[in-house]
Amino acid sequence: MKKTVFSFFFTCLGILISFSQNTNKDILYFPPLNNNEWETITMEETHWKTSEVEPLLNYIESKGTKAFIILKDGKIALEWYGNGADSNSVLPWYSAAKTLAAFTIGIAQNEGYLSIEDPSNNYLRKGWSSLTESQESKITVKHHLSMTTGLDYTVMNKNCTLPRCLTYKNAPGSFWYYHNAGYTKTHNIVAGAVKQSFESYFNEKLRDKIGMQGEWKRLGYAKPFYSNARSMARFGLLNLNKGIWNNTPILKDPEYFSAMVNTSQNQNESYGYLWWLNGKESYRLPGLTKKFDSKLIPNAPDDLIAGLGKNDQKLYVVPSKNIVVVRMGDKAKKTRFGPSNFDNELWEKLNKLID
């Protein structure tokens, strides 16, 4: 009798879990892959405050914005271009593109090419840093994803990926610092694991699967991604649906996806695998070692996850509201890094529209 009751209970629980996992997918719209069509949703249908649209657009235009998109349930609720840009403009993601690399590593792991628990020197060429072989062997792929490699962040050029620039400072996993060079090496990790260029693997496994456009371009030691705004919106929509495009899983590992968008280490609660996380009790910022006891973006929903790039490139994904927000353009505030006080200002304006 007990077995029957427990069997019935777990069957019902399984149905409920399955329903909760599919609910979002069932109401989300996905644009076609091979053309520029994208369904829209009116302000009346969203039940948002129409009177707040013009103040929001005036604000973003005054802040150097070139492209701005809000998706609701996957449909375009608001799309605006200005300051010399239009829908065809190719714009940089800067560090917001780190999220693309994190997603690609998840695909490579799911396909059996790598494990994020492995030492990264399994996939990088010998002597990729100035560390000893023993020191290198303690740095895992996960440390690169979580900004905890322990590489020296006091070097003159934190973007430099030459071995002479990559020296030891802390034990891997013991200290969080936003070190761009450690991130940039994730491209080489993927390439070494899959035995083809990072770009070609990314294009095949992610970009082309969801109808994105764009390419990675060399900029000094870094290689940012450039695309139109709708391509960023497509990637946001993919992550809103937990790595599934319409009915097609792009990232077939729910466990990795969950880890990617949750706290990845115990030094910066607001950082996952190259994603920024809101709603945590504290955060650290690029270029600083200080911890701030506050939410990353106090005005934004707690479940927001974000790709944040230099000059205020913003990709916000908010499951509780079923929205994606894209902002691309020139820097809005006097800041060089990803998170900025513009985030909080922008969400003050957005809340007036969507609340």
Rank of each mutant, 00 (worst) to 15 (best):
Y81T: 13
L57I: 11
Y94W: 13
F68P: 07
E79Q: 15
N110F: 10
D73E: 11
A85R: 09
N88C: 04
A97T: 12
K142F: 11
S129F: 06
Y113C: 03
K142N: 12
G84H: 06
G106S: 08
S95E: 08
Y153F: 13
A85G: 07
Y113Q: 06
L78I: 15
K49V: 12
A96T: 06
N121W: 10
H144C: 00
Y94Q: 11
L57P: 08
K72N: 15
F103I: 09
D118Q: 03
E37T: 13
T132I: 05
I76R: 14
K142M: 11
S87L: 07
N34I: 13
E79N: 08
K138N: 12
G82Q: 05
I116E: 03
W38A: 12
N110L: 10
H144V: 00
F103H: 09
T148E: 07
Y29E: 11
I60E: 03
G106T: 12
I41Y: 02
L151Y: 14
Y81C: 11
Y113S: 05
S120F: 05
W93T: 13
F103Y: 08
K126G: 01
S95G: 07
N110I: 08
T104G: 07
Q135W: 08
E44V: 13
L33H: 01
A97M: 09
E117L: 06
F30P: 00
T149V: 09
W128A: 12
G112R: 03
E133F: 13
H47A: 15
L114G: 10
S137E: 05
A67S: 15
G82A: 02
I105A: 10
P32D: 07
N35L: 04
W48M: 14
K98V: 12
N122G: 02
G64C: 05
I60C: 00
E79H: 08
I139F: 00
K49F: 05
E54I: 13
T65L: 04
N83H: 01
A108K: 10
Q109D: 08
T50V: 08
E54G: 01
N34E: 15
L100D: 03
S137Y: 04
E39D: 05
G82H: 04
L100E: 06
S130P: 07
K66R: 14
K142T: 08
G64Q: 04
K98M: 08
W38F: 13
S130G: 10
E133H: 14
A108I: 13
Y94T: 04
P31T: 14
I76Q: 07
L151N: 09
S87F: 10
T140S: 10
T40R: 11
I105G: 09
M147F: 08
E111I: 06
G84A: 05
T132M: 05
